[in-house]
Write a protein that binds this DNA or RNA. Structure first.
Length: 463
RNA sequence: GGCGACGUAGCCAAGUUGGUAAGGCACGGGUCUGCAAAACCUGCAUCACGGGUUCGAGUCCCGUCGUCGCCUCCA
């Protein structure tokens, strides 16, 4: 039985879907005004893992991740660069999707955008409905949500309206009825992207578009809504306020929030420039490394991005891959009762651990134990057939976590030539010309080829 | 100031309803090897601190110190 930590109740709760066997899941995607950084990757990976595990558990998952493709920052950035805001957004969306693909993140069922006609229509319908019910009002072409009208405002973040009043800013000449009220529609200035409405031409506020896309794609009530924990307030709080005031139905059953990735002890942030882009990361590391980093921690807690944690993740991956090495050439077979038992135990433990709020670090621990059992059995002489079930299980479980664990490959037809070098080196070793054979080994190693001299001859692989 | 999360070995980190601490990285010893690498075997913590509840607490309660996030755009 899967249990998930619900931000709203601050407790782990049994997971029950609205509709038998089906999960409606919405994750807040990025505002596309700049290159994405590894913090975005962390969030995307966390929810990809959740999604994969739900599917593994037998659920049919309708996974929606949006793109915010119109907002103040996009407009500012486009104006600074002298380009069209829509083209700017389009470019970053394409880049982001490529990154997700590179990171082996399953594509969303649908990626709605704020500016799509279907979304805009929904947004307008919501704003009109909210105005009609008295939850919103218009001023000078803007529309604001009347926070005081919503009795349970603050239930997600645990804030009280009175407490927030003290810190809320009241801009000079603020036209809002109350400082806490937030914009659901912004009047467009000259030359800015705008859509036509009865109260003025403009663009949607940040919060309303998510509510609208969620409603349009998944319905009035959904099972899981996810995002970074920096979105809890005000973004998700406001989404709840708008959605529930409009539909009068409970908006989300389980709120899931991932922790922030830390660089130099601080959260990465576009505004402070404290970040590493996904592009830079992938230029130096294979995508599994990023995923491993995430899997080794708790999705809700902060994740340190350091040279040491990256190295640790890389070495851990090598170890996982070692489990897939084939049986030795002259494997005579051995008693595999222990391995069989370990395989079954690992499968059970994996599910049980993941069921406890997607405990990936714990699940990884079980997988590593299976790896050791496989390697141990291989060393003891287990043949390919005897290793098969355990290795298939290893492949399956690491696959649920989204790890690819693929062998590295050399370029072109290099393998043949390396094979030739190995043969030559074998001759050299037979003649006990150690200095020369070591030189060949070292030089190949520098080229990324790892050589191992074993009992049954020399083997090699790309690393 | 308000709300929240957290503090387990050198580092990352797990720890369902309390019963004497998974796993990974790094490090030491050993097997194997011409040497090495890999793999395997093996060694390495009493859980921030101080109280309390209990037969018994990392695991519940109170306090202290510390770290981080949010309260303005942010995954």
């Amino acid at each position: 039985m899967l249990r998930l930590y619900n931000t709203q109740t601050r407790k782990k709760e049994e997971f029950q879907t609205l509709e038998e066997g089906k999960v409606r899941m919405y994750v807040c995607g990025p505002t596309v005004y700049d290159n994405a950084h590894v913090g975005h990757a962390m969030s995307a990976l966390v929810f990809d893992i959740v999604r994969r595990y739900l599917q593994y558990s037998g659920y049919d998952v309708n996974f929606v991740m949006n793109f915010t493709d119109v907002d103040d920052k996009i407009i500012d950035r486009a104006s600074t660069k002298g380009v069209d805001p829509f083209e700017l957004a389009e470019g970053y969306i394409k880049e982001y999707k490529d990154h997700l693909d590179d990171l082996n993140i399953l594509p969303a069922t649908v990626n709605p955008r704020a500016t799509e006609p279907k979304t805009m229509k929904q947004i307008l319908a919501m704003i009109e409905g909210l105005i009609e019910k008295g939850y919103a009002y218009t001023v000078n072409g803007d529309a604001y949500f009347r926070v005081h009208k919503d009795d349970d405002y603050g239930k997600l973040s645990g804030r009280k309206l009175e407490d927030m009043q003290a810190g809320a800013r009241i801009a000079v000449g603020d036209i809002k009825e109350n400082p806490s009220d937030f914009a659901i529609w912004k009047n467009a200035k000259e030359g800015e992207p705008a859509w036509e409405t009865p109260w003025g031409n403009g663009r949607p506020g940040w919060h309303i578009e998510c509510s609208a896309m969620c409603l349009h794609e998944l319905g009035e009530s959904i099972d899981i809504h996810g995002g970074g924990n920096d979105l809890i307030f005000p973004h998700h709080e406001n989404e709840i306020a708008q959605s529930e005031s409009f539909t009068e139905k409970p908006f989300v059953r389980y709120w899931m929030h991932n922790g922030m990735m830390q660089l130099d002890g601080e959260a990465m942030s576009k505004s402070t420039g404290n970040l590493v882009t996904i592009e830079d990361f992938l230029a130096d590391h294979e995508s599994d490394v990023m995923r491993m980093l995430v899997l080794n921690g708790n999705y809700r807690g902060p994740l340190a991005y350091t040279d040491e944690s990256i190295t640790s993740a890389e070495n851990g991956l090598k170890r996982l891959k070692s489990g897939f090495r084939p049986a030795t050439a002259k494997a005579a077979g051995t008693d595999t009762e222990t391995l069989t038992a370990k395989t079954t135990a690992t499968r059970d433990a994996f599910t049980q651990t993941m069921d406890d709020d997607i405990n990936t670090a714990g699940a990884l621990g079980h997988i590593f134990e299976l790896v050791r059992s496989i390697n141990s059995a291989r060393d003891a002489g287990a043949n390919a057939e005897q290793l098969r079930d355990a290795q298939e299980t290893l492949r399956e479980l690491t696959g649920v976590l989204g790890l690819e664990l693929s062998d590295k490959e050399g370029s072109g037809g290099a393998d043949k030539f390396i094979g030739l070098l190995i043969d030559v080196r074998t001759e050299v070793r037979a003649q006990k010309l150690w200095a020369l054979s070591d030189q060949i080994r070292d030089k190949l190693n520098e080229l990324g080829v790892n050589i191992e001299d074993g009992k049954e001859g020399t083997s090699w692989r790309w690393e």
